[in-house]
């Protein structure tokens, strides 16, 4: 693991160029360019809020729109990372086959490019919440929450990018997997909802889903939304970093075979 971060630091210029490349390619040949970063969560929000209104789904709260927007913006970051990771390695066959450089720079650059996107969206999100007079509290936890979410995304990105080199099924699995995970995470419902389903003794098990803790932590800081069972929220954050460790180990174990498969 130390070499993992040392390699990243040593090749930071390459990393910077790759992040720039990822961002540029995403918006090349599209007229609206970078605005898609804002537009796609915006569309998601419009769709969900319209349906929530029709279905009369508002969790009995006045600030349901803010609640939903925070959830979707945070969730989008994860989904974009997972989708982009599929081809982080497999889409760079020529580089992998002909040149030697730390392979994990590629998924790292994918996640960081999406993190840049996320941060820009986040600025807009903050503006929106200010206008809606949302109550902030303990915002100092936000960098920690973001770092943990990045760790989670990176861990998954390492696993997915490596797996997709060997198994083309990965793509399909990701589609189904993220959909299931979306419904299992408190994006458009609150964490109480999850807890109510579980037997009383098992309520804290919801934090085994790292996104449960991450989403409620964002809402805690941005909307002063209390977290039930907060003393166990660390489990989610530990999960984030555990996923990074596991993803990294998986990647390390298979990276020598990338050039053979591509």
């Amino acid at each position: 693991m130390p070499t993992f971060f040392r390699d990243i630091y040593e090749r930071r210029e390459l990393l910077g160029i790759l992040i720039g490349r990822n961002l540029k390619i995403r918006y090349k040949n599209s007229a609206l360019g970078f605005f898609w970063t804002l537009l796609s969560p915006l569309f998601m929000i419009v769709i969900y809020s319209v349906f929530a209104r029709i279905m009369k789904w508002n969790l009995g709260r006045d600030d349901f729109l803010q609640f939903l927007v925070v959830g979707i913006v945070v969730w989008q970051f994860l989904v974009m990372c997972l989708n982009d990771s599929l081809n982080a390695i497999a889409g760079n066959g020529n580089l992998i086959k002909k040149t030697a450089f730390p392979r994990h720079i590629l998924p790292v650059s994918t996640v960081l490019a999406n993190a840049v996107n996320f941060l820009l969206t986040f600025v807009v999100l903050l503006g929106f919440l200010l206008i809606m007079r949302s109550e902030f509290q303990s915002v100092w936890i936000l960098p920690l929450v973001m770092a943990s979410q990045c760790a989670l995304c990176l861990g998954l990105s390492l696993a997915i990018s490596a797996s997709h080199v060997f198994f083309k099924d990965t793509e399909h699995a990701i589609g189904v997997g993220t959909l299931a995970w979306f419904f299992m995470s408190p994006v458009f419902y609150s964490i109480d909802f999850q807890m109510d389903i579980l037997p009383a003794a098992w309520r804290s098990a919801v934090f085994l889903n790292p996104m449960s803790g991450v989403l409620s932590a964002y809402r805690y800081a941005l909307m002063s939304e209390p977290i039930p069972g907060a003393e166990h929220v660390w489990v989610s954050f530990a999960m984030c970093w555990a996923v990074l460790l596991a993803g990294q180990a998986l990647f390390r174990g298979s990276e020598n075979k990338f050039a053979d498969e591509l």
């Binding site: 090749r11 910077g16 160029i17 720039g20 490349r21 540029k24 390619i25 090349k28 580089l95 040149t99």
Partner: peptide
């Protein structure tokens, strides 16, 4: 090979240099 078709010649040159470990 290794050049990205969507990037300009200039961008590809710097990308290749970075892969080879040369500073900007």
């Amino acid at each position: 090979a290794g050049f990205h078709p969507d990037l300009t010649g200039r961008e590809n040159v710097f990308l290749y240099g970075a892969i080879m470990g040369l500073s900007r």
